[in-house]
């Protein structure tokens, strides 16, 4: 094994139960810093559950039990001294349906800054943050004159970009994406994929997708999961061209799923 510092997320024997149902079984993973890693597998294989472990949103439901360890930047996020608030500030999440807040575009982008600042932020800082974040996701030219418009009135593609822009002012380490393109059309999907490429390197991205071709196009590494277990984890080309496991081969050929 090469040195650990290049790994951003490491799990050790991670298991998770929804009441009596075991959704994750002894998951051991090393997700590399700065790359796009995709999680693929048939419905119900635990991809989304695994993703939601990384910022501990699964625990909202009282009946979830987790065992094992998740180290993010070499800190076990299940340690008692971990604050969920700072954890989620560092690990952003993008959802299947774009979920902008029912406030203006501007307020959406600065929402994180406002809730994490003591005693308020200067208007100039907020303005700057909005411009930087919207430029980074490619919305600035379109929206710079409509910053006070309601965010929920934007096109879906713009909404999804805005949801990504909303994370950036908090300078997250990791961006988790749960099927970020499944509500979008072809152009929207391409736009989000291009955006992911442009963010690569600065942020570690983990993306859950149902779309094998999307995983193939857009990710550096690929993890194939089945029935709560990690079957195969390798570089994307390797996984698609020379899968080591027969189950993986059958899945990427489309025999089931």
């Amino acid at each position: 094994m090469s040195d650990d510092s290049q790994f951003c997320i490491t799990t050790r024997d991670l298991s998770l139960w929804y009441a009596k149902f075991q959704a994750l079984k002894q998951v051991n993973l090393n997700i590399r810093q700065g790359l796009i890693t995709s999680l693929i597998g048939p419905s119900g294989c635990g991809k989304t559950t695994l993703l939601r472990c990384f910022n501990r949103v699964n625990e909202r439901c009282g009946y979830v039990t987790t065992t094992g360890e998740i180290r993010i930047l070499d800190k076990n996020i299940y340690d008692p001294d971990v604050s969920l608030i700072s954890l989620r500030k560092a690990i952003g999440m993008v959802f299947q349906r774009p979920n902008p807040l029912p406030i203006s575009v501007y307020e959406n982008v600065v929402f994180g800054l406002r809730i994490h600042s003591e005693g308020g932020v200067k208007k100039s800082e907020l303005d700057a943050a909005v411009e930087v974040a919207l430029t980074e996701v490619g919305l600035w030219t379109d929206l710079k004159d409509r910053l006070n418009d309601k965010a929920v009135g934007l096109q879906l593609e713009q909404q999804q970009k805005l949801c990504i822009a909303r994370l950036l002012p908090l300078k997250p380490e990791i961006i988790l994406m749960d099927e970020p393109c499944s509500a979008l059309d072809v152009d929207g999907t391409r736009a989000i994929e291009e955006l992911m490429f442009s963010l690569k390197g600065r942020y570690t991205m983990v993306i859950v997708t149902h779309n094998m071709m999307q995983a193939r196009r857009s990710s550096d590494e690929c993890i194939f999961m089945l029935m709560g277990e990690v079957v195969e984890h390798s570089r994307t080309e390797e996984l698609f061209l020379t899968p080591k496991n027969a189950k993986t081969a059958e899945y990427i050929e489309g025999r089931y799923g």
Partner: peptide, 14 residues
């Protein structure tokens, strides 16, 4: 909608 709450929680809002 629950999605509003999730959006807040996921940027670390209490």
């Amino acid at each position: 909608p629950r999605s509003f709450r999730e959006a807040c929680w996921n940027v670390g809002a209490t």
